[in-house]
Computed example of a mutant assay.
Amino acid sequence: MSTDKKIKINQLLSTQPSGIVYLSSWLVKEGYSLDLQKRYRNSDWLTSIGTGAMIRSGDNVGYEGAIFALQKQVGQFIHPAGKTALSLLGKAHYLELSPKKVTVFGGQHEKLPTWCKTHDWGIKLDYYSSSFLPSEIGLVEVELKTFSIKVSSAARAILECLFLAPKNQELVECYQLMEGLNNLRPNLVQNLLESCTSIKVKRLFLFLAEKANHSWVKHLNIEKIDLGSGKRSIVKNGVYNPKYKITVPVALANGEL
């Protein structure tokens, strides 16, 4: 390989953090042609992890490095969400220390690339695409070892948990997570609830927040939040809550936790 090409790859690797995925499409825009990328792979500078994606040879790359690439290199909304986001924010201390899966959300029309779905990250990716919350509200930047990524804030994350409940997230666990969220910002919560399109999520959120007796609840303007009409049966054989017209697990309704 020519000296110029070595200088060019060294510039790339020295300006980007370790532990990330390099997307071929982004590299082309940065001046690294497909032919040059192939030469770097043949020279063992870069290693392919699937069509259109590479890592630095010998680098240890987790799923977070994939999220970095999707967010920073191609501007996607895909982000760690729900219980995973709460864990990254230090809001889920009691949860399993070594989770077997991570929760990732994306926009309604966003899909995980094939390379991201098929590569072995050492952990299972549970991906959900939805537009029940707008993409511009309630994300925060979290610093990892060598780079940062956007994840759901605590307020958005608990709403995402409730979006998955009860099929993919236990409601009792949602309440346990809610109990730890005693310092949410009322203005952000208000904004998220007003923007949320899921009646189920909004009713469950307010029910659990009141049950947890959080002081920030009294600062919310419930009248501005569309809670819909009619009853919602969240679980079978549950207890009906007349205020929010939802059927919830017996353990939640009767305080048997």
Results as ranks from 00 to 15, higher is better:
H93G: 06
W121R: 07
L164K: 00
L227I: 10
Y128I: 15
R203E: 08
G238M: 12
T51I: 13
P242K: 09
L208F: 12
H109P: 03
S131V: 11
D126G: 08
M54D: 12
G138A: 05
L257G: 01
N254E: 14
D226M: 00
E179C: 15
G228I: 00
P242I: 09
G31D: 02
L112D: 04
K111V: 14
L97R: 13
E136V: 10
D226A: 00
V217E: 02
G75W: 02
W26S: 12
S24K: 15
V248I: 15
S233C: 06
H119W: 07
T114G: 10
T15H: 11
K224P: 03
Y128G: 05
I246H: 07
R203Q: 05
L159Y: 01
T247V: 15
L70D: 00
S43H: 12
G52E: 08
Q11E: 10
Q169I: 01
S57M: 11
L144C: 06
K117P: 06
G58A: 09
S135K: 15
E210M: 07
L97F: 04
Q76E: 05
L89E: 02
V21F: 02
Q73R: 11
L184H: 07
G19F: 08
I199C: 07
L162V: 05
L12S: 09
S135P: 09
V189E: 00
A53L: 11
N213L: 12
T114L: 15
A155H: 05
Q37F: 01
W121V: 01
S2F: 10
E110Y: 11
N60A: 07
S130M: 10
T103L: 12
P186M: 02
A69W: 03
K101C: 01
Q190V: 03
L159I: 06
N10G: 13
I234G: 07
C196S: 09
W115Y: 03
S87P: 00
S135Y: 10
K218R: 15
R39T: 06
F205L: 14
A66H: 02
Q16L: 08
Q108G: 10
T15N: 14
W216G: 06
L159S: 05
V102C: 00
Y240W: 10
N213T: 13
Y244T: 11
Y94S: 07
G90D: 01
Y128Q: 11
I7M: 11
V28F: 03
V235E: 04
A154N: 04
D226G: 00
P80T: 00
